[in-house]
């Protein structure tokens, strides 16, 4: 079995291993970082690239068939939705009153009152 995966299979394995590694780092970040905003940073960056590489591995392994094309579409979908979701969570958390970590240095968003009601006033 192991000597029949071929070049594409080997590339796929490498991509998937790298993807898992980044997903792991992202998960460690979720545990270690202090507040919701920093955790979102780990969540959006490492997990996006990790998932990206995993799906890319699937694409390389299966080529242009039903599974491969699904992976490609998922790639596009993850790239579009992951940062948007992170923005929604961060904004909602801030408006719900979750303050930044006590050692944070600046919060100009709070200074502007969450920018509430400024949508109309903005030039």
């Amino acid at each position: 079995m192991s000597d029949s995966i071929g070049f594409a299979g080997a590339c796929a394995l490498i991509l998937m291993s790298l993807g898992l590694l980044f997903d792991l780092v992202g998960s460690i970040g979720l545990v270690r970082l202090p507040d919701v905003y920093n955790r979102l940073q780990a969540g959006t960056k490492c997990v996006t690239l990790g998932t990206f590489l995993l799906l890319l591995g699937v694409l390389v392994r299966f080529g242009c068939d039903a599974t491969g094309v699904k992976a490609l579409l998922c790639l596009w979908f993850v790239a579009m939705t992951s940062p948007t979701a992170a923005h929604a969570i961060a904004r909602a958390s801030h408006r719900a009153g979750f303050r930044l970590w006590s050692k944070s240095v600046v919060d100009q968003y709070a200074e502007d009152g969450d920018a509430r009601g400024r949508e109309e006033a903005a030039p």
């Binding site: 905003y37 979102l40 940073q41 959006t44 960056k45 996006t48 790239a79 579009m80 992951s82 940062p83 948007t84 992170a86 923005h87 961060a90 904004r91 801030h94 968003y109 969450d114 920018a115 400024r118 949508e119 903005a122 030039p123």
Partner: peptide, 18 residues
């Protein structure tokens, strides 16, 4: 905003006007 979220150490929290 989405590009900023995906790149080094930055996360877009909100966009109001410009």
């Amino acid at each position: 905003a989405n590009s900023i979220t995906l790149t080094p150490g930055t996360l877009s929290v909100d966009v109001v006007g410009d």
